[in-house]
Design a protein around this nucleic acid. Structure first.
Ligand SMILES: [Mn+2]
Ligand SMILES: [Mn+2]
Ligand SMILES: [Zn+2]
Ligand SMILES: [Zn+2]
Lengths: 154, 154
DNA sequence: CCTTACATTGGAATGGTTCTCATTTGTTAT
DNA sequence: ATAACAAATGAGAACCATTCCAATGTAAGG
């Protein structure tokens, strides 16, 4: 279960975004804030089965779509057919395993400059009024490298 | 219809990748090489209805998935629910309109360095063995800016 | 030309996501 | 506190992009 501090924080986030505070929204957001596992709707439903035993799948979809609209949450695909969700509290991007689908967070000093530069150049060239970006990197996670018997430098 | 030169080029591409040369593959690849409209499976099916009146949807999916596996083609989502496909002849990324879904190609001098740097840093930090990346930028296309009556600098 | 491994076909199945609508609930104003 | 209204919820049905399957067709090598 989410800590008291997380519950306070998420309550404030909902209020800041002028979103109606329902138990479902509060609990889902608290779950996302305290878990960086990039869950699917099913994963969330299972994880919250104690706190919200009767929640409908549509409510989870509605809630997550609302969070996405408010840029609280981002959507990710890893090739397994379902959408993964991620609370976007601090800027980062993702490395996605092409073998097992594992998604890990990545950032580095200077990443936000890279981002900003990409957006500025894109605006200049395309004429789009930029509102955001997604960067993803694909490859084999360390575990799959071992599992598949692949040598790094050879 | 695709030009003679395109047909020769795509034939060679298929051979280079040791892909069996079927009319369906050849025509689909030629279509993608000569159109940068980021089509869906339905778009492709409609566009090729003269040349391939009896092609099955599963054949188009199979073909495109094969091309994706061989890194000839990349998949894109623009939020309309279906996957868009793009022949990836030269390195570029995409600006996607959040209002109408329009996808345009972008590149700039130094882009490949940005890409390479992102991949190297990701490998270092995550331990993944990198095989590729996707970068996308979101915003309003020029047409939608006008349609929605949005001023750029104000 | 024969062989065979692989590709195509079309229809059915799948499954993630959205839709519908009756009911409940949160919020704001009185 | 209460009332009134808009918005959210949840169960199930509907949707539809994509995959699966078994039968048929065909490209490519010998
Ligand atoms: Mn993340
Ligand atoms: Mn493109
Ligand atoms: Zn993996
Ligand atoms: Zn647009």
């Amino acid at each position: 279960m989410a800590s008291n501090a997380v519950m306070e924080e998420t309550l404030q986030v909902l209020k800041d975004h002028k979103l109606r505070v329902t138990p479902q929204r509060h609990i889902i957001l608290a779950y996302l804030v305290s878990h960086h596992n990039h869950p699917t709707v099913e994963t969330i439903r299972d994880a919250l089965s104690k706190e919200l035993p009767n929640i409908g799948a549509s409510t989870i979809y509605n809630t997550l779509n609302t969070f996405v609209d408010h840029h609280l949450v981002v959507e990710l695909q890893n090739g397994d057919g379902s959408t993964h969700y991620d609370y976007f509290g601090s800027p980062h991007y993702h490395a996605i395993c092409t073998n097992c689908g594992r998604i890990v967070d990545v950032t580095y000093p200077g990443f936000s400059e890279t981002e900003k530069s990409l957006e500025e150049k894109t605006a200049e060239i395309s004429g789009y009024m930029i509102s955001g970006n997604h960067m993803e990197v694909y490859g084999l996670c360390p575990e799959c490298q071992i599992k598949l018997g692949i040598k790094k430098n050879d």
